[in-house]
């Protein structure tokens, strides 16, 4: 592999005196599936938002496919087309149907003709198993379905990498499975993904690299087996203990 798809060095962010994260280095290679774990409030979500420039980092540089996107004058809107983002609370456009949600970026950002956009949007909805819900408004869909539409909306832009910000934590337990299943399929299709989640089962099974973050910095990272079975640091071990107590072992 020649160069990482997404790379960041020395990324820092604070709100007032409150340091969200400090001096983060991260590199996402083609086909990587990286899961970021860690206690709540350690800056994982903010880190994802900084990576696609939805939030401005205070310092540090970010490269997408070798081009520095934090350089002055670089178009943020252009960058975000290539980085898909899935939010914890779905954030579907409430005034548009499922199909309309997926089509909007295609017609207004990529300026595809309507017919072509429609076709592409339908195939993306099909990919997440929701072609039959194309005409439904967000208010008529379950949480799991809404999140799958949100994934389709991001996929439709043919992103180089997908960022998932706790995609299942706003869902009722019985709806988590369908979203994870879609993500698993994406992994099999070799989509490059950066996922913040508390779903340890998913992390273990799908990720090729785990990053453990605490208090705004990366404590340790490594392959799932290594990190889950032989964590190097006491803090990592403690966190893993707590999370298994909380969520239990995943029933497969």
């Amino acid at each position: 592999m020649d160069q990482p798809i997404l790379k960041a060095t020395g990324l820092s962010k604070k709100y007032g005196d409150n340091v969200v994260f400090h001096n983060i280095d991260i590199a996402v290679e083609q086909g990587d599936i990286i899961v970021i774990i860690g206690p709540s409030g350690t800056g994982k979500s903010t880190l994802l938002r900084c990576l696609n420039l939805l939030t401005k980092a205070d310092s540090g540089k970010i490269w997408l496919d070798g081009t520095e996107i934090t350089a002055p004058g670089h178009s943020e809107d252009e960058v975000r087309q290539h980085i898909g983002m899935v939010f914890q609370n779905f954030l579907l456009f409430n005034h548009l149907t499922a199909l309309g949600n997926v089509m909007l970026g295609l017609t207004k950002v990529r300026h595809l003709p309507r017919e072509q956009a429609r076709e592409k949007a339908l195939s993306e909805l099909n990919r997440v198993g929701l072609a039959d819900r194309a005409g439904h408004y967000p208010g008529q869909l379950s949480g799991g379905q809404q999140q799958r539409v949100a994934i389709a909306r991001a996929l439709a832009m043919d992103p180089r990498v997908m960022l998932f910000d706790e995609p299942t934590s706003a869902l009722d337990p019985e709806l988590i499975g369908e979203v994870l299943e879609v993500m698993r399929q994406l992994a099999m299709q070799k989509m490059t993904m950066l996922v913040v989640t508390h779903e340890m089962g998913f992390a273990r099974e799908v990720a090729n690299r785990i990053i453990f973050m605490e208090k705004g910095s990366i404590v340790e990272e490594g392959a799932p087996n290594e990190l889950f079975l032989r964590p190097k640091f006491e803090r990592t071990r403690e966190f893993l203990w707590k999370i298994t107590e909380l969520y239990g072992h995943k029933k497969e």
Binding site: E78, M85, L91, F93
Partner: peptide
């Protein structure tokens, strides 16, 4: 919600 603006920006609008 502010989130709607963020969602719009996230797909490159």
């Amino acid at each position: 919600s502010e989130g709607q603006m963020m969602a719009g920006r996230s797909i490159g609008l």
